[in-house]
Structures are given as C-alpha cells and as structure tokens.
Design a protein around this nucleic acid. Structure first.
Length: 445
RNA sequence: CGGGGCGUGGCGCAGUCUGGUAGCGCACCUGUUUUGGGUACAGGGGGUCGUGAGUUCGAAUCUCGCCGCCCCGACCA
C-alpha cells in the first residue's frame, strides 16, 4: 500500500478524550474514530488489525475442531424470557421494540440463541460432541464506557458453545478450549495467563479468565511467576486426546494465578516469596463450564445410549477480539507510539523514502515496494512529499515492526537501512539482503 | 447511577468572571525555501461559538431547559 493513497488520518496532538495509551494511540494512529460513547468506527488500519486477529481466532478454532457460523446481532426477547435472563440481565441489555411492538434486543451474548438452534436440530447423543462458535458484534450498555475499544459498549467477540453428553465429555471440551486459547494468544505475540475467576452473570462452576499483564489493566492479579515460563510453542496437540488436553490444562492451572475476585491470600503465601507477583491485568477471554443450566431451562435434551432423554452439558467461551487490539497496544508501546508484534501488524514493513522526487531514491523504493509486495510481505510505502522527520514520526507512531529507510546518501554506497521498531537497532544492507532478512523474519510468523 | 468537569474551524486551546458581533497553535491550500528525526518565510480558505427559549439596542459571554462527551467512584468482556 502506498501511504499517499491510504486513508490514515494521523493526529499530531492527543485528543482530549483519551486517557490511556491504547486509546490515545489508536486515535492518533488513525485506527479508530469515536462515533458515540463506547461506539467506534474502525478506519482502514484499525480494521486491518481487527480482521487479522479475527483470522487467527478462526484458524485456531477450526484447528480445534469447532464449527464456525454466524448468529444475528438482534435477537427476540422471547428466548431470553424462557431462560429467565431477560429480567436478570438488567440495564446492560439494549432493548429495542420493533414496529410490531415486539420486544427485541441487541445481543450481549448468545447462549439462548445457540441453545434454541441446538435443541431444534439435535436429538441424539450420536450427534455429540458439538462445538459451535461465531465472531460477531455484541452490545452491552455499559454505565460508563471508557478506555476506547477496551471497554466499549459495542464490541467484537468470538463466542463459542460446546454441547456434550455428560460432564466428563464437557470437561474435555473445557480443556480443549483452554489449549486452543493458549495457542491463539501465543500466536498473537501475547502472554495471556489463565486465572481462576468468578462466573459472573453467565453462571457455572468451572471458569478461567485469560489476562494480559499491563499496568492499565482493570483487574488486580496475583500469580506465581513460574507461569510466565510456560510455553506451548510448536508442540503437537491432538485436540481429540482427552489426556493430553487435560495434562496441558493441569500444567497451566497448577501455578497460582488468580484475580482479586478469587484471590486466596493463604494459598498465595505457599508460593515461594521470590515468585509471588502481583500486577494489573486486562481480561481478553474467558471459558466456562456451566453444566445443564441452559439445557434445563430451555429444554435442550438428547437421547442417550440407554434411550433416556437427558439434558446436555454445556460450556461457553469468549475471546474479546476488539478488546485485544487495545490490549496488545497496552502491552506493547512506547512514548513514540505502537510497537506491533509481527503476527498482528497491519503492514509487515514500512518503506521510508527520505527524498521523494530524487530519481535514485524513488527508483530504489519502487523496486523494493514491488518486490516485497510480490513476496507477500505487505509493505506500507511512505511516498508522501514529506520531510524525513515527519515520515519517521509517522512510522514510529503506527508501529510497524520493521522499517526500510532509503535515501540518496545510503544509495551512493548501495545500501538501505533496516530498523527494528522494538529495539531501534539498524543495519545497513544491500537491498537484496534486506529483502532476504524480512523473508526470514516473517517465515516463522 | 452518585460526584466532578467540558462542549468555540479537522485537532489542541484562549476568549465567558466584567455582553459590543471571534482569536492562537497544529493541520489544510498556493508560492518560495529546506531536505537522514515533525524546516523556514509569505499569502490564503475554513467556525450561525452543542441546542432551544429568554433577558438586552446588542449574547460565545447573563438566565432557564434540553442534548452530547470526558474524568473519579460503584459495576463490567
């Protein structure tokens, strides 16, 4: 993409409404614009990141054997009356009346809808296990939206639901989600720690939240630093292997890690003192097992092997995709701007032409732009008639992990400069070497 | 929802107390200049001052209502 043709309305000054880093930087980098309180438009670069996160979530869900689908944003109140949550959910639910006077709502979650779909189409244990999910916009009418996309009213979220014949099978679904979520966050370049949590309004027994450590997190968290060393890496996972999934679940849930809601000071004291950590965390996902709560109230039953009609065991699982954009920035930025992890960056490399209009510089930039594009390395070429300083400041702000700097001075010696946004370290390379380095860097992403 | 604050060109703000018909910086346009970390100079375009009513010869400014947004708290993915 050529910056001269890209809609990237960057702001030199900080808009007064933004108080935390991710919100400030998303506005300044031209990723989002506020539409009303807690509701945002996603401009091209923000949208690109959002889509990439969505893709990673899809890939990992499908890898775990789950079924993608899409449910509507607007739901009928009738289903919610059936589960009893129409009254329970309270003011956070945006209620709408259609022209016929029917009570509708903008969905904050989809347990009722999915259970209705399930019960109408599944009658036998032979159709289980089943996990359905979708990635869709949700709405919760927060009393006080804040922190940009981290706590908006409208948000983009993956939510999934598993249906199993009994508790052991449902617990395997739980473990499977634990593993697939760990993988998902790892791929995004994030360290997300599963922590024992409260079940909140969704209800249920077993639940873990996934938290990204960041100073601006909304929750206080306590953990054994040993958990930071755990890594899924590229180990082979068989999602149908109950024992393996259970073992990984145990591996990650054994070290102490809890939010302030479930914190147990006595248990925490058993952790060796030098490994006892507390900080702030941003919740980016949660998994639940809630048994037959919805299948009982909504009559979602199947026939088991003995011919008995039994309620299915369910769980639900969520990843806050739009919130993740903010969380990643909170976890990865400096005073100049964003620092994107390679896996989620909107463009893989920025090309800075230091002397627009100079024949040698223009030619070298064009050639590299075309070559990188052909290799799928998605460059963003700053071809504006701007001074070097302005181009550097823009690149630093939008946070592309690598920058190719090209100007007459270097070209005289046949070199261009490749700079890491994260470390600031530059190396001078001939263009072909620079391309080879980028290919190598992105090969593993 | 309790407490506090703010709405003035795209953005950041001054002007409001003490009414006289709108200003600064950035951004934008034109020209010259400059060119490896947000160049400099000159010229230029753009605002019914959130909204409605009232007071007044005259309202960004005073009064009342309404709307919107932000911050702290309680709450929440």
């Amino acid at each position: 993409m050529r910056l001269s043709r890209y809609f990237l309305p960057i702001l030199k000054e900080t808009p007064s409404e933004a108080s935390i880093a991710s919100h400030r930087l998303m506005l300044r980098a031209g990723m989002i614009r506020q539409s009303s309180a807690g509701i945002y438009s996603w401009l091209p670069m923000g949208f690109k990141v959002l889509r990439q996160l969505e893709n990673i979530v899809h890939e990992e869900q499908i890898r775990a054997g789950h079924n993608p689908m899409l449910m509507p944003t607007v739901q009928s109140a009738d289903l919610w009356r059936e589960s009893g949550r129409y009254e329970d959910y309270g003011e956070e639910m945006l209620r709408i009346t259609d022209r016929h006077g029917h009570d509708m709502l903008y969905g904050p979650t989809n347990e009722e809808l999915i259970t209705d779909i399930f019960r109408n189409s599944v009658q036998s244990y032979k159709q289980l296990p089943l996990t359905l999910y979708h990635i869709q916009w949700k709405f919760r009418d927060e009393r006080r939206p804040r922190f940009g996309v981290m706590r908006g009213r409208e948000f983009f979220m993956k939510d999934g639901y598993n249906f199993d014949i009994d508790k052991p099978a449902a617990m395997h679904a739980y473990n499977r989600h634990m593993v697939s979520y760990l993988r998902t966050y790892e791929r995004m370049g994030l360290k997300a720690i599963p922590m024992r949590a409260d079940s909140g309004p969704i209800g249920g027994d077993d639940t873990h939240e996934f938290l990204v450590l960041a100073d601006t997190g909304e929750s206080e968290v306590f953990y054994d630093s040993a958990i930071l060393d755990l890594n899924l890496g590229d180990r082979a996972v068989d999602y149908d292997d109950w024992d393996q999934c259970a073992a990984i679940n145990t591996e990650w849930t054994t070290p102490y890690a809890r939010t302030d809601e479930t914190h147990d000071a006595a248990k925490f004291a058993e952790v060796p003192e030098e490994r006892r950590c507390s900080s702030r965390g941003i919740e980016v996902g949660q998994i639940f097992y809630f048994g037959t709560k919805y299948s009982d109230s909504m009559n979602a039953k199947v026939v088991n092997g003995d011919g008995d009609l039994v309620p299915v065991h369910m769980g639900s699982h969520g990843i806050g995709v739009s919130r993740l954009v903010g969380a990643i920035i909170e976890a990865s930025h400096d005073d100049k701007g964003i620092i994107w992890p390679e896996a989620v960056t909107p463009f893989k490399v920025g090309i800075v032409n230091l002397r627009q209009g100079d024949e040698a510089a223009d030619g070298a930039c064009e050639a590299l732009y075309k070559e990188l594009t052909a290799l799928g390395l998605e460059p963003l070429y700053d071809d504006r008639e701007e001074r070097a300083g302005a181009k550097f400041a823009t690149m630093d702000l939008i946070g592309l992990p690598w920058r190719l700097t090209i100007g007459p001075r270097g070209l005289k010696n046949g070199v261009v400069e490749l700079t890491s946004r994260k470390t600031g370290v530059s190396e001078e390379l001939v263009p072909a070497e620079a391309v080879a380095r980028l290919v190598e860097i992105y090969a593993g992403v």
